[in-house]
Design a protein around this nucleic acid. Structure first.
Lengths: 234, 234, 234, 234
DNA sequence: AATGAATGAGAATTCATTCAT
DNA sequence: TATGAATGAATTCTCATTCAT
């Protein structure tokens, strides 16, 4: 996974609080996606983060278009106008949400992947991490899998490139595995990457829309990895 | 696959024009999803279908919320008010679109699946059909994978149950295969179904958003089936 | 006075109902600036004109910025949205007002001036016409002398060029008179034009802001012409 | 010119810094309207004056409504809130501007006029002074001729009485001239005053909106006085 | 059935003003 | 005095939907 493919674009004042640990399962016990508020209630980020936090909740409940800015403001306990001190528009709020939270996920993955010995391990790590990190963040999962796609402009201009970069990163792992003889060579890395990403997305989506049972995502991760790794084996 | 799971709800006057043939590849040469206009220009369906046709185009281009009803009317060559003679609301237009077109796909699949000898063949047929039928229907593919999710209400109230029914149908195939010893038994049919569905969705989505190359979907179908069938093999 | 300098820019559907007569006093008994509604209640212009009519009243009462679009709508007896079927924006409403009404005044003047035998007669005619035509149109006078200047953008981009064209037309009359020996030659036609225009504007303004007595403007016109013609005499 | 007609209403802490000299041309070389800052940087007036100074600039550039209080604050180098320590509101800022600067002009004229031997000389002095004093103060000229009229409330409640007082002063000069046989008697002093005021205003306005060439105003003053004095001669 | 002019509810955003520090 | 983050009232304009023709 190249640095560039997952690199983030700095935005607002969202500092990149880097999570650093990795357990054997490649997913830390405490979620690195959780709001930084807990530790960083100190300065500035405070109000901005309260707004982001509230936005996740409200967007997940009602969707992007059906959500009124005033609802987010109310949920965040600030005045309507205050939102605009931290975000340019309602759309920017959604983008910032995505950048702020997804960037943490990607940064974490960027740190973990190099630790894996080979392509199969990396692929499993990607699956474990994506699902493992969203476990316990049902609302965020919903925002990423559904809400983000509700603004066509956002989807096409902003999210698509990010998704493509992520796909590229997965495709690289597949290609690396093929080169090393760990994966069958008759499968296009690109198609494989889309299948992996789609499967992850589909599992997340149905989980988020359903009862979002605790542990379900991690269990699904294991099984998905089992199927895909065997499916890609030479 | 149970009747109920894929059964359609009659709506407006959209009769279920049943496509009839099946080639060896399980996908007919002429797309069964194409507008029924050609044959059914007789009465009533005419204008209704022109509106649906136009709606696919315009929704695919601009998304659900950014599309004005007047744009659909213009594209269909009818007056704004005429839309409301055939559909209850803008949202109903999208729902009808989904029902009208997806129902044809599902009906077709309902007809084809029983012809397959076993679960692996059925799973491959599902994959072939979903991707094969959308090939050449880029705009419809975009409407199904993206636009339909833009109305949170629609997504939660209408599409989700349909998707779940489709998931059930796939899960049943997997379970059937496990029972027959064709598939490994350590994988939850539910999780497998979500992975299959997600992979199909992801491949369709990126294809629709990208250059939508001719033949790409069919090629992807073959590879996806190869990976999944090996991945699920006992 | 050149055609170009007072030519209008067609806008919306405001047909140029040309007034045609000229009395000895160069000002017709029935005001050519009055809404065309009276005669033309027939088609289309009806609602548009009702809105313009209402806008003059409300703008004159409250000024441009303090006037709500909904107030204009209410005064015109139409729905808020209807305004936007005929005008692009609140600002466009003001511009259209200006174009629609001032154009009639200028068109009238364009028709009358050539009938005057010499420059002094033309200058007197301009003064008579500007003041005579606004007599009985207090609100319109207020819109032109005050309200139009309340939008800086409008003033600089739209009104200024029109005013300059008008100034040019007056300057040409002065220059013509100087060439013919009817006016003293030590006065810059440009400065004279500004003085004439300013005097007309000042008289109109104070009249509109004051009690706007009947006949006051025509009386003022005579005296102003007397002073200026003697002041410009060789 | 009566004391009352041009007397100022004390406001804020704006003391009347009295300019003192008078040249033969009735207009001093150094502008008496310039900010008092230079001498009075001592206390209090300092910041208040910086704000007024900044307000002239910003109002002249963008107009009253389009100007944000924060822009004035920035231009003055103070915090937004500081403005409200010196002025009650944005509107009060404009009023204060008017009072502060116009009062200096009027005070100066009050001092000069009695020195003139007769009505014609007084009228010429008024013209010379109004135009002469604004020369070199383009932005102030713009504020007085345009910006001040952008708030309808201000215009009607505040400026109109002031303008009327000024008109009265001019009318008195005309009447005085008529009584002394220096001016023709068939012209209403009121109308004459309006014409003079309007001409002055029109010349200032077009000069401010145009290129505001150096010397143009003084030249215009001479010519305007020439025309009006001959026009008013018996 | 078809039209499209008219409707009017609805919401994002701005910005003058306040006030805790 | 000075600050500037926070407030929240206020308003233009859009557009799905209706309905008289």
């Amino acid at each position: 996974m190249s640095e560039s493919s997952l690199s983030s674009r700095a935005r607002g004042g969202a500092g990149g609080k880097k999570p650093k640990r990795a357990s054997k399962s490649a997913v830390p016990a405490s979620p690195p996606l959780a709001s930084a508020t807990a530790h960083a209630k100190r300065r500035g980020g405070d109000k901005r983060d309260r707004i982001l936090e509230a936005a996740i909740k409200v967007f997940a409940r009602s969707g992007f278009h059906a959500t009124r800015v005033s609802e987010v403001a109310k949920a965040a306990g600030v005045a309507d106008g205050t939102i605009y001190l931290y975000f340019e528009s309602k759309e920017d709020l959604l983008v910032s949400l995505f950048e702020d939270r997804v960037e943490r996920l990607l940064a974490f993955m960027r740190g973990e992947l190099p630790k894996q010995p080979n392509a199969p391990a990396k692929l499993r790590a990607v699956i474990d991490m994506q699902l493992g990190l969203l476990e316990g963040e049902r609302e965020l999962a919903e925002v990423i899998t559904i809400i983000l796609r509700q603004s066509t402009r956002l989807m096409k201009e902003f999210a698509a490139p990010r998704f493509l970069a992520y796909l590229d990163a997965i495709a690289k792992i597949v290609a690396e595995g093929q080169a090393a003889g760990d994966f069958r060579k008759d499968i296009s890395p690109h198609i494989a990457a889309r299948a992996v990403f789609g499967a992850l997305d589909g599992i997340t989506l149905t989980w988020a829309l359903g009862r979002a049972e605790q542990g379900a995502l991690r269990r699904a991760a294991t099984q998905l990895a089992d199927v895909l790794l065997r499916g890609l084996s030479p």
